[in-house]
Amino acid sequence: MNLLLSGIWVALTGSLFYTNFLFGFMLGFFVLWIMNRNETDQRYFYRVPKVISFIFYFLYQLIKSNIQVAFDVITPRYFFTPGIVKYPMNARTDFEINLLTTMISLTPGTLIIDISEDKKTIYIHVMYLTTPEAFVRETKTGLERRLLEILR
């Protein structure tokens, strides 16, 4: 409904720019929130800000790791310290596991090697590994927590 309202806004204003679409999306979000304030199901109004926050967080991680890999490629000295990490997941369903492993693999410098038979751990090759515990902690509190907040 929110996308429909933002599309209507773009059609009414006659200006097909992404900023106008984003403004229409925010305006539609506000209109839907006003209309559904007394409803019991408010999940949409909590998920949209979390999705936007996740997108910005993932883009930040993506840019940061791209800069790190690019710097390592253009300098004569190699700074990478590769390693394989056994990562215990909180994701349980196949969809959650698939989305988590895809997001981890999209980040430069990481690659999913295998998923255990019981679907509780994944094995990740990390190009810049300081300590396995730090990588697990950072991924659990960052990427996985934010992703599961959106999906559950």
Rank of each mutant, 00 (worst) to 15 (best):
L3C: 09
L3G: 08
L4A: 11
L4V: 11
S6H: 04
V10M: 10
A11G: 08
A11R: 09
A11L: 15
T13S: 05
T13R: 07
G14T: 05
S15H: 11
S15K: 15
F17M: 15
T19A: 14
T19C: 07
T19S: 12
F21T: 03
L22P: 04
L22M: 12
F23G: 01
F23C: 04
G24L: 02
F25T: 07
F25H: 00
L27P: 00
L32Q: 08
L32W: 00
L32D: 11
L32S: 05
I34N: 12
I34Y: 14
I34D: 12
N38M: 01
N38I: 11
D41S: 08
D41R: 09
Q42E: 07
Q42P: 03
R43M: 12
R47S: 08
V48L: 08
K50C: 09
K50D: 05
S53L: 10
S53I: 06
I55H: 05
F56L: 11
Y57P: 00
Y57V: 04
Y57S: 10
F58D: 00
F58S: 01
L59H: 04
Y60L: 12
Y60C: 10
Q61M: 15
L62D: 00
L62C: 07
N66G: 08
Q68F: 05
Q68Y: 09
V69C: 02
V73I: 15
V73K: 14
I74S: 00
P76T: 08
R77H: 10
Y78A: 02
F79M: 13
F79Q: 15
F79S: 09
F80R: 14
F80C: 15
T81I: 13
T81S: 13
G83Y: 01
G83W: 01
I84M: 01
I84T: 02
I84K: 01
V85Q: 04
V85R: 00
K86L: 08
Y87P: 00
N90D: 12
R92M: 11
R92C: 11
R92E: 15
R92N: 13
R92Q: 12
T93A: 04
F95I: 13
F95N: 10
I97Y: 00
N98W: 09
L99W: 07
L99T: 07
M103H: 05
I104H: 02
S105E: 05
T107N: 08
T107H: 04
P108M: 02
L111Q: 06
D114Q: 11
D114T: 09
I115R: 01
S116P: 04
S116A: 07
D118I: 02
D118M: 02
K119T: 11
K120D: 02
K120R: 10
T121R: 12
T121N: 13
I122F: 03
I122M: 06
Y123F: 13
Y123D: 05
I124S: 01
H125M: 00
V126P: 01
V126A: 02
M127H: 12
M127T: 09
M127V: 09
T130P: 06
T130D: 14
T130R: 15
P132Y: 03
E133R: 10
E133I: 08
F135Y: 13
F135L: 08
V136T: 14
R137H: 13
R137V: 07
R137D: 13
E138Q: 11
K140R: 13
T141F: 14
G142S: 03
R145Q: 14
R146E: 04
R146P: 03
L147C: 04
E149G: 03
L151N: 10
R152N: 14
R152C: 05
R152A: 05
